[in-house]
Design a protein around this nucleic acid. Structure first.
Length: 659
RNA sequence: GCCUGGGUAGCUCAGUCGGUAGAGCAACGCAUUCGUAAUGCGUAGGUCAGGAGUUCGAAUCUCCUCCCAGGCUCCA
């Protein structure tokens, strides 16, 4: 038997005996690596460790603490989950079980009309751990189509996947299985799954997992097909990594905007009003006002003109716009008047702005026209999707429509994108990428040429912005493609923020025209854009980004002044008055409770500055400054100095924690 | 809309076998006057989401409706 040479990721060559496997190679490199190895990446393809190497292969050994390693662990854990379920519920059908971000899931259909309930997770977990203790190998075997069909004769979902792949297959199916043969992994004589692999060598390599929830999921993601039950879990390479992830989930929950909304007394959703319909309390109302005022000022500077439109309209308007044809299900049902006329709550502001454009004859000299409105819109979201302030049934869009010529379009889009990013940065979001959503198949109006031009224009502008660009094929609106700005928040989650949509259709549908330089009636290009998206959603994102510790300029209460004793209250009040004259939102809490208790309350309310004033301060005209996020109060700060610092911080949109 | 859970005081939650409800915090009152994350004592607070049913008796069991959560589908 002769040796062969293979290449390692660092470019070096390593010789191993002919017929050696990935595991042998790992062993040749080091004992520790052989112990850790999960799989091998051979010439770019992920393979089981047991696969034999050929001369000249480029081989990388996949270890647990890499992204690929975690993916394999998660995928293998999902197989263990499926086996556990089939042991506990003989006759259960298992559908698909991929790895996902941070974990895995598997979809099941239980025999009879059985369903998982939350309590079953514990039993399944115990069964999974016993499978892991059994140290079962993941054994790959390949079969012909016919043998594959026979093998999974009692697994209808597997049969459907095999048949789909045999007859061409979709990308989704090919992800699950290989195109050429039916490949399977068997863990034991009683459990075999259809899978392309690779997997960890044996189940004992797994175990740092937690089943998190049971959910419903449609087979093949199709609402009209049977609903299966999905079990989600998270899995990691070590107990420490698992613990760290669970802690991350706890931290994420602490900054949930719905929780903060209640704790900070910002808003609520009274059930008397209805799902997805928020009321803003005084503090939330203040925060909104500051956000809106700031946005208004920026729009004035940006050359926008302010318009106002009603909340309801006759049905014809939405027939002309096309919204009723496409989105009737998503609109509140009509109010029908005595004469049979139907009125709808508006789900969008655009048709109204088009009518303002059309209210008189327009000249090319007026363009671009930029109409801005904080427009309240109502959408009848399905009951299961309503979520806090991020998915509501009534919201306020910072909506504008720009009417311009074809020639102006590219420049207008480019300056708009700058305007958007500047505004988002002013609110403290800094980490962005762009997403380009293109024509939705079977749900679009307009010609191929128009779509092509619109998509190409947006792509150019997006590329010119120098940000990462992600494609979202088919994600556009029915009337045109869009760019959306995605922002990463303080703990790395992404949120869709602003959208910019290009629209050649609406002006056509409404027959909106201007008189061009050559005296011809010409259709303008319409750009839809919302920077906050909705004021409600934007507030939610900011709350989660800052974990409720809003920068001082956005804090509903910026300063609270506390006298040490009752006889300091008068001085505290005079300090507050001085700050209030600067426009600062400040309150005084009288000394009817111990100082420590009042400080605690103010800290829990996340007030950026707590000023404590006592004998020394009354005598010298100073303050004790307790800054949010600091455990080290500053004593004897002159009032004038504090005012200067605070006013500067507010003007610069700063936050006390940022030093 | 669908699947699985849930709804008890303002908030967070306990409530055993079906025997008419409890804590902590908050609120209110009185006392306390205090230098950086909880002063003490007392008081009040409930249509156990709503409705119907089973039962001598329902927060507890059954059904319906509303609302909430986690997912799926959807998102102009």
């Amino acid at each position: 038997m002769s040796d062969i040479e293979d290449l390692l990721p660092d470019g070096s060559a390593r010789s191993v005996p002919e017929g050696a496997t990935g595991l042998d190679l790992a062993g040749a490199i080091g004992k520790r690596l052989a112990k850790d190895a999960l799989a091998a990446q051979i010439n770019g393809d992920l393979k089981d460790l047991s696969v034999a190497l050929r001369a000249g292969d480029h081989v990388a050994i996949v270890t647990p603490s890499s992204e690929l390693g975690r993916e394999i662990i998660r995928h293998s854990t999902s197989h263990v989950l499926a086996q556990a379920v089939t042991r506990l519920w003989p006759g259960a059908h298992y559908a698909i079980g991929p790895s996902i971000t941070d974990g895995f899931y598997y979809d099941f259909e239980l025999p009879g009309d059985a369903h998982f309930s939350d309590g079953d997770l514990e039993r399944i977990d115990a069964e999974m751990r016993s499978i892991i203790r059994e140290d079962q190998p993941f054994t790959r075997a390949e079969f012909s189509w016919a043998d594959g069909l026979a093998l999974f004769a009692d697994q209808p979902f597997k049969l459907e996947i095999i048949n789909a792949v045999a007859s061409g297959g979709s990308a989704e199916d090919l992800d699950e299985v290989d195109a050429s043969v039916v490949s399977t992994y068997a863990n034991s004589p009683t459990f075999r799954d259809l899978c392309r692999g690779p997997h960890v060598p044996t189940t004992s390599r797994l175990g740092h997992f937690k089943l998190t929830r049971v959910a419903g999921a449609y087979w093949r993601g199709d609402e009209k097909r049977p609903q299966l039950q999905r079990i989600y879990g998270t899995a990691w390479e070590s107990e420490a990594a698992l613990e760290a992830h669970l802690e991350f989930l706890v931290q994420a929950e602490l900054r949930d905007h719905r929780r903060l909304g209640q704790e900070l007394d910002l808003f609520s959703f009274p059930s008397e009003i209805g799902p997805g319909l928020a009321v803003f309390h005084p503090k939330g109302g203040t925060m909104r006002r500051i956000m809106e005022d700031y946005s208004r000022n920026r729009h004035v500077q940006g050359g926008y003109e302010f318009v106002n439109t009603p909340h309801i309209s006759k049905e014809d308007l939405f027939l002309t716009s096309g919204h009723l044809q496409w989105f009737a299900d998503g609109m509140y049902p009509p109010m029908e008047l005595d004469d049979g006329q139907k009125y709808y709550l508006k789900p969008m502001n655009c048709p109204f702005h088009v009518l303002i454009f059309k209210s008189r004859q327009r000249s090319y000299r007026e363009l671009p026209l930029r109409f801005f409105e904080f427009g309240a819109v109502y959408r009848y979201e399905k009951s299961g999707v309503v979520h806090g302030l991020t998915r509501v049934r009534g919201m306020t869009q910072d909506d504008a429509h720009i009417f311009c010529t074809r020639e102006q379009m590219a420049g207008e889009l480019a300056s708009l994108l700058t305007f958007v990013l500047d505004l988002l940065r002013d609110f403290g979001l800094a980490d962005f990428y762009l997403e380009l959503s293109t024509r939705p198949e079977g749900k679009a109006v307009g010609t191929d040429a128009e779509w092509h031009e619109a998509e190409a224009t947006l792509a150019d502008v997006a590329n010119a912005a120098g940000l990462e660009l992600v494609m979202d094929p088919g994600g556009g609106a029915f009337y045109g493609p869009k760019i959306s700005v995605q922002a990463r928040d303080a703990i790395g989650r992404t949120h869709q923020m602003s959208t910019i949509q290009l629209d050649f259709q609406t002006p056509q549908r409404f027959d909106a025209t201007y008189i061009s330089a050559d005296n011809a009636r010409t259709q303008p290009i319409m750009i839809h854009r919302a920077l906050f998206g909705s004021v409600e959603r934007f507030m939610a994102v900011l709350l989660e980004h800052y974990a409720g510790n809003m920068p001082t300029w956005l804090s509903p209460e910026q300063v609270r002044v506390l006298g040490v004793r009752n006889d300091h209250d008068a001085y505290a009040t005079s300090v507050a008055e001085a700050l209030r004259r600067d426009g600062v939102r400040v309150t005084v809490e009288e000394a009817s409770e111990p100082l420590g208790a009042r400080i605690r309350k103010a800290k829990l309310e996340k007030v950026p500055y707590i000023l404590v004033v006592g004998d020394d301060d009354v005598a010298k005209g100073t303050l004790g400054v307790n800054q949010r996020g600091s455990n080290d109060p500053e004593r004897g700060v002159a009032l004038a100095e504090f005012r200067q610092r605070l006013n500067l911080e507010i003007a610069e949109h700063g936050s006390p924690e940022v030093t």
